[in-house]
Amino acid sequence: MPKKAGMEAWKKKRRQEHLEKKEFRYYIFCEGQQTEPLYFEGFKRCIEDNPIYRDMVLVEIEPCQAETMRVIGMAEKYVKKNKIEKGQIWCVYDKDSFPAKDFNGVVQRAERLNQENPDVQYHAAWSNECIEFWFLLHFAYYTANNHRTEYIAFLNDKFRELGIGKYQKNMKDIFNILMKKGNPKLAIRYAKRIIKDGQGKMPADIAPGTKEYELVEELVKYLRKKKF
């Protein structure tokens, strides 16, 4: 075997051994290529910066550039290909204009998969109709079922008010803006209230609504206290 190829194989093996030692594992599959990954990369950085948890927690983020059912399909393939035997698999996706059966289908598919292996559990961090609704909740309790353009307009007004400028979908500092300028604890409380009010309904019928908070609640457990 050539020396370079041998070294690469050794590095890959060592990395795999290192990852396997991590007790808490989160594999996040994002519908979008940038907005969602950039947001959750903020949590990943903060966890890796925390000396208490950085050697205990693994956060892997996979941009899918795919919608609804394709996101969980890609997650399943990743789990099988990489022989993942332990961890939480999170599918982050929006309703947008996709059919209700596909949007709800991710939750239903996750429930079926979770019966197969208690050590690998799938979760649906959906937003109806877009992740901007979750961002918006950092600044206000909002229940009007408007088009996503209205949520973006709200964020534009709020960001200008804060002196940040215009909201853009692929903002690299969106995590810091929401954590420092917004109120993530209130966002979680607001999102939970909306889900409670929609109890018994399918995700596509909770409009607006989001379960992004469930993933955020998991990740903030590993942040430094001053961060949250």
Rank of each mutant, 00 (worst) to 15 (best):
165 G>W: 10
119 D>E: 14
145 N>D: 15
32 G>A: 05
133 F>G: 04
181 K>Q: 13
205 D>T: 07
73 G>N: 05
46 C>N: 14
81 K>F: 10
163 G>F: 05
48 E>S: 13
58 L>S: 11
48 E>M: 13
7 M>K: 12
180 K>Q: 15
98 F>E: 11
76 E>T: 02
149 T>C: 08
105 G>S: 07
177 I>L: 09
132 E>N: 02
77 K>E: 15
100 A>Q: 10
118 P>H: 06
171 M>C: 10
128 N>T: 08
155 L>H: 02
79 V>A: 06
167 Y>Q: 05
130 C>Y: 04
93 Y>D: 04
174 I>L: 02
97 S>H: 15
166 K>Q: 15
191 A>R: 04
115 Q>P: 01
3 K>H: 11
90 W>L: 00
135 F>C: 04
70 R>M: 12
162 L>K: 09
16 Q>M: 13
190 Y>C: 06
63 P>H: 04
147 H>E: 14
196 K>L: 09
192 K>H: 09
191 A>L: 04
170 N>R: 00
177 I>G: 05
107 V>H: 15
121 Q>C: 13
93 Y>A: 02
175 F>L: 05
114 N>H: 02
199 Q>Y: 14
191 A>V: 09
96 D>L: 02
112 R>V: 12
12 K>F: 06
13 K>Y: 14
192 K>L: 08
149 T>R: 11
188 I>H: 03
126 W>A: 00
94 D>H: 03
30 C>S: 06
62 E>N: 09
34 Q>N: 13
40 F>C: 00
224 R>V: 06
71 V>L: 04
88 Q>Y: 14
9 A>D: 12
163 G>L: 01
206 I>Q: 03
58 L>K: 09
202 M>R: 10
194 I>S: 04
123 H>R: 08
190 Y>H: 15
61 I>Q: 07
146 N>W: 11
41 E>M: 11
125 A>V: 02
44 K>V: 05
119 D>F: 11
53 Y>A: 06
134 W>Y: 11
68 T>W: 00
143 T>W: 08
128 N>W: 03
21 K>Y: 09
35 T>Q: 07
77 K>P: 03
228 F>S: 08
92 V>N: 00
222 Y>E: 05
54 R>H: 10
171 M>R: 12
87 G>V: 03
64 C>D: 07
134 W>D: 03
122 Y>V: 00
129 E>S: 11
109 R>W: 05
183 N>R: 04
104 N>P: 08
190 Y>R: 08
223 L>M: 12
195 I>E: 13
114 N>K: 04
160 R>W: 13
116 E>S: 13
156 N>A: 04
170 N>T: 11
141 Y>G: 01
5 A>P: 00
21 K>G: 08
122 Y>M: 03
7 M>E: 15
206 I>A: 01
99 P>F: 01
175 F>A: 07
15 R>Q: 13
56 M>V: 14
220 V>A: 05
76 E>H: 01
72 I>W: 02
